[in-house]
């Protein structure tokens, strides 16, 4: 579904990603872990086409098409969804209206009929339950005055309504208490499906107790230094990032240096 080859990206001329290779197939859940500044969030943002990130080298294909050519809205139409690390507050635009516009934009792109108000509301109310979100938040302005936990739940709720093909969770666990974390995880788990892939970007192993990944990749200094199954996350938890970085430097040091060039 998603193929990333030798991806290099920079912000304001500063190289952040230095040669990422990654393949994600339908039905898989990949965790991307790494210390602060390793490039995890940059990778997530490059995949959704955020301004300010310049791809300097490499390719990203999504279902066979060149992803990097698409605008952010086109990527959304193609079924890519980012759960934001810092969800934006949008005063004056209600949650429900944004969702409706969003759902219909995607349906229109697929050549499907727009949902009428009743069907839409039915869909939305069913999805509210999956993340245990209060209905009143539907009619409030997007994220305005929401608590940290409510904002993250709202991201997962939007994801549940939009049913993306590729969902990218950017540090969705940061700042959550255990109840919110469980609710968010159960919302994500409910979306696991054979025709859908999920990329979970996280600093901590904690989230992966609840969203169990098929693969774990460790990012440091802008490249993947180690990949493995879920046990890699547990090892990281035990030994810390320092351990794996020094461990990986021995094996992959040369590659990292050439990538940085």
């Amino acid at each position: 579904m998603l193929k990333i080859n030798d991806l290099h990206a920079s912000i304001d001329g500063k190289a952040i990603l230095k040669g990422i290779d990654l393949e994600v197939k339908a039905g898989e859940v990949h965790a991307i872990m790494g210390p602060n500044g390793s490039g995890k969030s940059t990778l997530a943002n490059v995949l959704v086409g955020r301004d300010g990130y310049t791809v300097t080298r490499g390719r990203v294909t999504y279902n066979g098409q060149n992803l990097l050519e698409l605008s952010p809205e086109e990527r959304a139409h193609e079924g890519i969804f980012l759960a934001f690390q810092y969800p934006v507050e949008i005063p004056g635009v209600s949650n429900i209206n944004l969702l409706k516009a969003s759902v219909n934009a995607v349906r229109k792109h697929r050549g499907e009929k727009e949902l009428d108000a009743i069907d839409f509301l039915k869909l939305v109310k069913a999805k509210l339950k999956t993340v245990d979100m209060k209905q009143e938040l539907l009619y409030r302005s997007v994220n305005e005055g929401f608590s940290g936990g409510e904002k993250k739940r709202n991201e997962v709720f939007q994801m549940a309504v939009l049913e993306p093909t590729l969902a990218i969770m950017d540090e969705t666990d940061s700042g959550l208490d255990i109840d919110a974390l469980k609710a968010v995880a159960s919302g994500v788990n409910a979306l696991r499906a054979d025709d859908r892939a999920i990329i979970v970007v996280t600093h901590y192993q904690r989230l992966l107790d609840y969203i169990v990944p098929d693969y774990v990749h460790v990012l440091a200094h802008g490249s993947v230094i180690k990949s493995g199954d879920k046990s890699l996350a547990l090892e990281l938890e035990k030994h810390g990032y320092g351990w794996i970085e020094s461990h990986a430097d021995d094996q992959a040091g040369a590659a990292t240096v050439s990538g940085a060039g």
Binding site: E73, V88, I90, V93, A101, H109
Partner: peptide
Amino acid sequence: DPDAVFYLRSRGVAEEAARGLLTYAF
């Protein structure tokens, strides 16, 4: 707010509509 424009675009709203919508919301 460019972050708000991007947020809407990432949800599938075209850029021009996103800008119009935020202006209207203001």
